[in-house]
């Protein structure tokens, strides 16, 4: 950590009521994090990957049908199943609540991929290639990962680090919601979301906009979910992984007709 004077615990809230499934977050992530271009070959080999993906579910049957969208990214679980199974400590939990992946250590056993219930860890089967004209647009703050390692969403740790340097280390101010979004220190997907369905913040900051959702979900874990005041829930709560991403339920104004 560049500056230990402030403690952080990063978290995200995804409001499914606002998500339109536009995939802007996917593209933003792809550009920000030097993710290789998913070519036709990669798709045919079933090796194309994204760090954040939009899951699309159909509800009902045509014509009485609705599409549901859910952005799924690394949940940065507090109790992550992927962490204890890495033999080389390539993935571990850092002090800021992030589940980090150390590319240099990774040997590519792929156990973490198998042990991730959210299926957000991706293996680099080939060495990444970009057309020559695009090499200059690679993000210099992000490593270009070699083949043979596992990678995943980092909550754009490079942006967080920049914020910690520019705001906290240089100016001595704590990062808060305002400075994070003002300085573009929030993850690329959050920044790119046109409907503001994704919110990013610091759970150690009592004024953070996302904190009430976390407090509510933490106060009514597991079977208390019906007592919650907000629409918040976590993915696969029975897995006991305690993710740092909270989803807000969709409000169905026009529910499907009954009888289906």
């Amino acid at each position: 950590m560049p500056n230990a004077q402030f403690e952080h615990k990063w978290g995200m809230v995804a409001d499914l009521d606002k998500c339109t499934g536009c995939q802007a977050c996917v593209i933003a992530c792809q550009a920000e994090n030097n993710i290789p271009i998913n070519t036709k070959d990669y798709f045919l080999q079933r090796r194309a990957y994204e760090w954040i993906r939009i899951e699309r579910y159909w509800e009902g049957e045509y014509p009485n049908v609705k599409a549901r969208f859910m952005p799924v990214l690394c949940q940065h679980c507090e109790n992550a199943p992927c962490e204890p199974v890495c033999p080389v400590f390539a993935t571990y939990h850092n002090e800021e609540g992030l589940n980090v992946q150390v590319y240099n250590r990774c040997v590519g056993t792929r156990y973490c991929i198998n042990n991730c219930p959210y299926q957000v860890r991706m293996f680099n089967f080939w060495h990444p290639n970009w057309p020559a004209r695009m090499e200059n647009q690679l993000n210099p703050d992000v490593t270009v990962r070699s083949r043979g390692i596992t990678e995943k969403c980092t909550f754009c740790v490079q942006r967080i680090r920049r914020g910690e340097l520019q705001v906290e280390a240089r100016d001595g101010n704590r990062l808060n919601d305002e400075t994070i979004s003002g300085g573009n220190y929030d993850p690329a997907c959050v920044q790119a979301c046109p409907t503001n369905a994704l919110m990013f913040g610091d759970l150690q900051d009592s004024n953070a906009a996302i904190k009430p959702y976390f407090d509510d979900v933490n106060a009514h874990p597991g079977h208390g979910e019906h007592d919650r005041e907000t629409r918040g829930y976590r993915l696969l709560e029975e897995m006991n992984t305690r993710p740092s991403v909270i989803y807000l339920k969709k409000i169905d104004k026009y529910p499907l007709e009954a009888g289906h």
Partner: peptide, 9 residues
């Protein structure tokens, strides 16, 4: 113990 699922705990 290793699985750490809620029900297992």
């Amino acid at each position: 113990w290793y699985g750490r699922l809620e029900v297992e705990q």
